[in-house]
Amino acid sequence: MALATRTDGTEKTGGTGKRPSMTRTLWRSTVGKKAVMAVSGLIMLGYLVAHMLGNLKIFFGASEYNGYAHWLRTMGEPLLHYEWALWLVRIVLVAAVVLHGVCAYQLSRRDIAARPNRYVHRRPRASYATRTMRWGGIILALFIVWHILDLTTGTAHPGGFQPGHPYQNVVDTFSTWYGNTVYLVAMIALGLHVRHGFWSAAGTLGVGSATRDRVLKTTANTLALALTAGFVAVPVAVMTGVVS
């Protein structure tokens, strides 16, 4: 028997029709998509904290920073082969980014479709947080592509990209005005995204409550500020000559 569609995007069966799987039902529901966004966002947040701490090793000199970059490729040895652990991290991150982006787009389309007759009533303005998350997500997606082409593949690197010498490659990137501009704008967008995203994820996963609101808000603000400051510290240090 044909499946009917509920208003929340899930399917229901009629008569003796086969019921959809729990995973499929969860994925098609608005609540399920928000949960996927929350979990994938927390995975990316964990990576960002580790990545920011690793970036700060640049203040200890080229040897320390290049050694850290080499360790990323050898972590897990001898159990894992060279770069296997790094590629596992990359695969998980790509999956998280794709799921996060797809769910964000689909939820946005549902939100637009669910609005009352917009041709009769004035369309309410999106909240500041909603607009920040939407445009911030686009900015960050474009930044990720540029960042990979710049410091991973070297395709968009401003100087002579040197494989195996990340310290010099970072200094070369932040010695240009456009490299600094792109990075600083993206990091501001990241801070705003983390600030609202952490709060939203906590609510979606049922962590938020009236008694925990203050703690969650403080945690979200602290994470956003720490990540923004930690990432911005590197280009500022290059611009001011602290790292050269």
Score class of each variant (00 low, 15 high):
Lys34Asn: 13
Val171Pro: 05
Val89Lys: 01
Val194His: 01
Val102Asn: 05
Ala69Arg: 08
Val194Leu: 06
Tyr65Thr: 01
Leu86Asn: 04
Gly159Asn: 08
Thr240Lys: 07
Val145Thr: 06
Phe143Ile: 02
Thr13Gly: 00
Gly230Thr: 03
His157Pro: 13
Gly41Tyr: 03
Leu88His: 02
Pro163Glu: 08
Pro78Met: 08
Gln162Tyr: 12
Phe174Ala: 01
Ser108Val: 04
Leu86Val: 02
Gly41Asp: 03
Thr10Trp: 08
Val243Phe: 01
Gly136Met: 04
His70Thr: 10
Gly9Asn: 03
Thr16Val: 09
Arg24Trp: 15
Gly197Thr: 00
Pro166Cys: 05
Met22Val: 11
Asp111Trp: 15
Ala224Asp: 05
Val98Asn: 06
Ala226Cys: 13
Ala114Arg: 12
Asp8Leu: 08
Gly67Tyr: 12
Gly136Thr: 04
Arg125Asn: 11
Asn66Arg: 09
Arg131Met: 12
Pro163Lys: 12
Gly101Asn: 10
Arg90Thr: 00
Val236Gln: 03
Thr25Val: 04
Tyr128Cys: 13
Leu140Ala: 01
Gly230Met: 08
Val145Lys: 09
Val49Glu: 03
Gly136Asp: 00
Thr25Ser: 11
Gly241Val: 08
Gly208Gln: 10
Val36Glu: 04
Val243Glu: 01
Ala35Glu: 14
Leu225Arg: 14
Ile148Gln: 07
Thr173Arg: 03
Ser40Asp: 05
Leu223Asp: 07
Ile58Ala: 00
Glu64Val: 11
Asp111His: 13
Arg134Ile: 09
Val89Ile: 05
Gln168Met: 07
Thr219Ser: 07
Met187Asn: 02
Val89Gly: 00
Gly208Lys: 11
Ala85Met: 09
Ala126Arg: 14
Met52Ala: 00
Arg115Phe: 09
Gly230Ser: 08
Arg6Ala: 00
Ala69Leu: 11
Val98His: 10
Ala210Met: 13
Gly9Met: 03
Lys34Phe: 11
Thr155Asn: 04
Pro20Ser: 13
Thr204Ser: 10
Gln162Lys: 14
Ile139Tyr: 02
Thr176Ser: 15
Ala156Tyr: 05
Leu99Val: 09
